[in-house]
């Protein structure tokens, strides 16, 4: 599989936002411009038919990566390549856009409340001129609605007549309507109830197998990510902390942040263990800490971590950005309980 050319590649991808206050206020307060480094130099690739997930806490930049991937944002630096062709240099061509689609987090905001479902689903079909007659369009919409587990009759209704889970199905039908090969899913189940989440995750896996889709999956939920991913990238303050094959990440998390994140997850099995919270708060991405951004919260931090920013280096079958792992000091931090229990 490693030989297959990647469907999607991000190379040193960065996106900075200017969050300065208006000029007049800046002059009064005598402060300079302020830049938010939402995504700061990350690289990964996704082979065709596979799923790569990005996990991290809010503000880590994972949703920005999703928007960079589909061209809603243009990169500040670095590039995005889709099927071997650069997307960043010029605007994506209609053909490239047709082949990539996005599923959003909030099923209540992602469907235009004034449109009937059949028009929502048909929008990409019309935008790309995929069918020529009205009858063809109707047939295709009916087929898509059936494919996501809805009735073709639902096409005449408005979004408010559906529950959150059904709306997310409509979103998926819309995303599939242009026959895409690559789907970017930004927290597609985090606004849903857990029983509905299972329905949607099953549906997405099923569609991936049937249609050979490639997924970039964004989530904050490690358990969800484990179910869907082939590879997982853990993000912290705009950078990748660790990038590893899914099973290997859960068998042996290397980066101290990954371990802390796993340790903080509530324990459903009620083994009686206490969660060990990660100390401190996520720092502001406008004024990130020096050196390794995680060092103020890291039990393994030393002087080098405060000074020098770690680069992604291979460690086993993973890539890890951590001085402690590179120097072999990481054994000082115990593996999370769930890893120990599994072993």
């Amino acid at each position: 599989m490693a030989d297959a050319p990647p469907m999607f590649e991000a190379r040193d991808l960065s996106r900075h936002f200017d969050v300065s206050r208006p000029l007049l206020q800046r002059m009064v307060a005598r402060e300079g411009r302020r830049t938010l480094r939402a995504v700061d130099g990350i690289s990964f690739d996704i082979p065709k038919g596979r799923t790569l997930s990005l996990v991290g806490e809010s503000g880590c930049g994972k949703s920005t990566v999703a928007r960079l991937a589909v061209g809603l944002y243009t990169p500040t630096a670095g590039s995005v390549r889709f099927d071997g062709r650069d997307l960043g240099a010029a605007r994506a061509s209609a053909d490239q856009r047709r082949r990539m689609q996005m599923i959003f987090q909030d099923p209540y905001a992602s469907l235009n409340p004034r449109w009937r479902v059949k028009h929502i689903v048909a929008e990409p079909i019309r935008a790309f001129g995929l069918v020529t007659t009205k009858a063809q369009e109707e047939a295709r919409v009916a087929e898509l609605l059936t494919q996501v587990g809805l009735s073709p009759l639902d096409g005449d209704k408005f979004p408010h007549e559906f529950s959150g889970g059904q709306r997310q199905r409509i979103s998926i039908a819309r995303a599939l309507s242009s026959n895409p090969e690559f789907l970017v899913c930004d927290e597609p189940t985090s606004a849903l109830d857990v029983s509905v989440q299972a329905q949607i995750l099953n549906l997405m896996k099923e569609l991936q197998q049937r249609l050979g889709l490639t997924f970039l999956f964004i989530s904050h939920n490690l358990a969800v990510v484990r179910q869907v991913s082939d590879r997982i990238g853990v993000m912290y303050l705009g950078r990748l902390a660790e990038l590893a094959p899914a099973e290997s990440l859960f068998r042996r998390p290397r980066h101290p942040y990954t371990r802390a994140l796993m340790e903080a997850i509530p324990d459903l099995d009620m083994t009686g263990r206490e969660r060990i919270p990660v100390g401190g708060e996520v720092p502001s991405p406008i004024t990130p800490p020096s050196g390794c951004a995680f060092h103020p919260r890291c039990p393994l931090a030393n002087d080098r971590c405060k000074r020098e920013r770690p680069e992604m280096k291979p460690a086993g079958d993973a890539m890890v950005a951590c001085h402690a792992v590179e120097e072999g000091r990481d054994d000082a931090m115990p593996m999370p309980a769930i890893v120990r229990d599994a072993a």
């Binding site: 996005m102 959003f104 242009s178």
Partner: peptide, 13 residues
């Protein structure tokens, strides 16, 4: 900034 507008932008409307 709602997602339905972003969805339309993704397909280049």
């Amino acid at each position: 900034n709602k997602e339905y507008v972003q969805a339309a932008r993704v397909i280049g409307v």
